[in-house]
Every structure is written in structure tokens, then in C-alpha cells.
Design a protein around this nucleic acid. Sequence first.
DNA 1: AAGCTAGTGTTGACATGTCAACAACGGGAG
DNA 2: CTCCCGTTGTTGACATGTCAACACTAGCTT
Lengths: 146, 146
Amino acid sequence: MPRLPTRDQLQVWREFIETTEALRARLATRLQADSGLSPGDYAVLLALSEAPEHRLRPSVLAATISWERSRLSHHLGRMERRGLIRRERDVIAEEAGLTAFHAATFPHLSAVRELFVDVLTPEQLDALADVTRALRASARDGHGLD
Amino acid sequence: MPRLPTRDQLQVWREFIETTEALRARLATRLQADSGLSPGDYAVLLALSEAPEHRLRPSVLAATISWERSRLSHHLGRMERRGLIRRERDVIAEEAGLTAFHAATFPHLSAVRELFVDVLTPEQLDALADVTRALRASARDGHGLD
DNA sequence: AAGCTAGTGTTGACATGTCAACAACGGGAG
DNA sequence: CTCCCGTTGTTGACATGTCAACACTAGCTT
């Protein structure tokens, strides 16, 4: 017999979700401005940049960044049209893709630092890691079956 | 001269974002299963259900749920096709919309409790509220200009 | 009244994401 | 070898979201 959250608890939830979303959006805007890459582009190029010869089978790439096959396929189509990658059997990073990725890395990590890490005290960051662990554990154990 | 996040800090960031996204997705799936509503539908219907006569001007509705006009307009078009709302000058909740909303409320709040509130200790919830406040304050002051 | 301007609402083009269907490939099992 | 069957990759339909352009309206101003 489930109880309902209190008003306060619900408010924490809503502000948590809204704040996270806003943070994600700000970082995406910055990334776009700094490099012309979307977060998805960045994730793909990060994985390729760390792979031998900057190439991976789509299935391996999908597993690496935890994307569904269909999502990846659609996204690769868009990236291919922009000349960031090309497809043989493997997905292969084009020069333009690697260049954009390298241009993106430093500003992106700086932004994470500026908008997230530096805004929190070390104690707050620890507490957040703790909360994240609890949520992940619950997702795995209690509701992985959803 | 911005420094970069440490490996640990970056990991906290990534797991934080991924966990939040997973949590949002699980709640959306539940909501859909319980009521056939998307989170967007739910937000619109919540605002309308609290308005006198269950009707609002689009601009007021947009302000209430913090959406851009265009986003709202597109979404209302989809909701109208499904018979959840209708449009005159005001956006007006249809019976079907209110019914679906009422069916959604209890299970949705229960799910928030189950997947979020009950997974955290009161101390963790307080700490999270604290972190959220810090992030919001930073967004408002430091980077509202972005 | 005529015109300016700010706010409002819609639209089209496009990016992103999910789901279901499909084709193609690659081993075993017989 | 041929038939299955699971994996893989793509595709189409659709939901969601942003941005820019547009039309429309409502006050003001003159």
C-alpha cells in the first residue's frame, strides 16, 4: 500500500529534475558553440578516438556508449552526412570528426568543472556521489525488472 | 585559466547524469503504462486541472510549466489529436484528458516515492536538496547570462 | 485613423529518440 | 550442405524538442 511523497519531498524531486535538465542543456549549448558537436556526437567521437585506428563495429560502439542499435544507426547517418565519420563494416572517425572532438574536449571538461564541480563543495560532491550510488543500486536491484 | 576536473570528479558527473536520465526514463515508462500519458501530457494536464474551469491561455500555460511557446504549440497539437484537450482562445482540458490525468496522479506519485524518495535516507534527501540549491544558485547568478 | 511595437501563437525544417519490422549474416544441428 | 536461429544493422513511423520565420493582435503614439 504505497504512500505518497510529502509536499517537501515532491518539491525536492521536481527541483532536482529541473535543475539537472537545465544543467545538461547549458552544457550542450556550450559544447555546440565550442565545437559544433552535440552531446551525442561527442560520445560517439570519444569512443572512436579511444579505439585502435579510430574505428569500431557499430555493435561494439553501441555497447561502449550504452546506446540502442537503432539510435546509433540514425545518429551515424546524421554524422556521416556532416562528414564526421564514415561507414565501412566499421564506423570510422573522419579527420574532421577527430578535429572537432579535440577542439571540444578541453572546453567541455572546463565547462563541467565550472558549472558543476566548482559550484559544489567537496562534501556536496561526495554526498552527491553517495546519492547516485543509492539510486543506481536501487535501479539495479529493485527495479531492474521493470 | 580553467583547470580540468579530476578523474573522480568526472566520474561523479557522468554517473550523476546517467543515473538521473535512467530515473527519468523509468518514471516516464511507468506513467505511460499507468495512464497512457507522457511526462509532457502530465505537465500540461496538471496545470489545466488546477486552473479555473480547466482552461488557460497558451501563454499562461507555457509560463506555468516553463515551456517555450513553440514547444507547447506542437505538443498541444498532438494532445488535441488524441482528444486530451481542445483549443479555443484558451487551451481547455477535455474530459478524457482529466480522466487520464486523475488515473495517472496516484501511481505517478507512488512511483516518485518508490524510485526516488524511499531509496534515499532523509539525510541523503536533505543533502540532495542542498546540492540542487547550489546548482540553481550558480545557474541564476553566474551563468544566467549564457 | 494610421502606424509602431511588443507580445502571442503557429508553422516548417530539422535534430534527436523509441519502437517495431525487416534484411542480412553467421554459426551450429541435422 | 541445408536449415534454423540469434545477432546485427537499417529503416519507417512517429513522439519530442529547438530555432527561425511568420502572421496576428493589442496597446500606444502621433
